[in-house]
């Protein structure tokens, strides 16, 4: 592998990225976890989480991230998200009806309320985040092969 310092963008961009990327990801998690209380939800949160990964790829060059998360792994994690969502639906089926809300409503405006919306949001976040990441990885790895 080449030296990290010489791939990707300039030092300024790398430093700013290092400071902001965790905040961006945290914001994505916040949007996801409070999706049933405020505007937002699994899809928006997942896109933000994926954007934080894409941010790293843009700043540090594609080799840096592609070594840590291969498109294979991203695909598997994405599928896990889908499977989680389906499992929620099937658990509802076990409680009587497909997609039935088997968790109670809970106390309004507390974090753990709103039945299956919170776990569904998390599942969607995983699905969307890693789905977008794997699509992005596929596209950039593809153009990489093309140049050789």
């Amino acid at each position: 592998m080449k030296d990290n310092k010489h791939t990707g963008m300039t030092l300024i961009v790398k430093t700013v990225t290092r400071w902001t990327v965790l905040l961006i990801m945290l914001y994505g998690w916040y949007i996801t976890f409070f999706g049933h209380l405020s505007p937002g939800g699994g899809f928006a949160g997942g896109v933000i989480v994926a954007l934080s990964f894409i941010h790293i790829i843009l700043a540090y060059g594609k080799d840096f991230v592609a070594e840590k998360i291969s498109e294979h792994l991203a695909g598997i994690l994405e599928t896990t998200g889908g499977l989680m969502f389906l499992t929620l639906a099937i658990l509802g089926l076990a409680a009587g009806i497909f997609f039935k809300d088997f968790l109670g409503q809970g106390k309004v405006f507390s974090l753990f309320s709103g039945g299956i919306i919170l776990p569904a949001n998390i599942a969607i976040m995983i699905k969307v985040g890693f789905g977008m990441l794997s699509a992005f990885l596929c596209l950039i790895l593809f153009s990489y092969q093309d140049k050789k």
């Binding site: 596929c138 596209l139 593809f142 153009s143």
Partner: peptide
């Protein structure tokens, strides 16, 4: 995304 992937392959 699918369209872009196919277009890249066509290229």
């Amino acid at each position: 995304i699918l369209m872009v992937a196919v277009a890249l392959r066509i290229y």
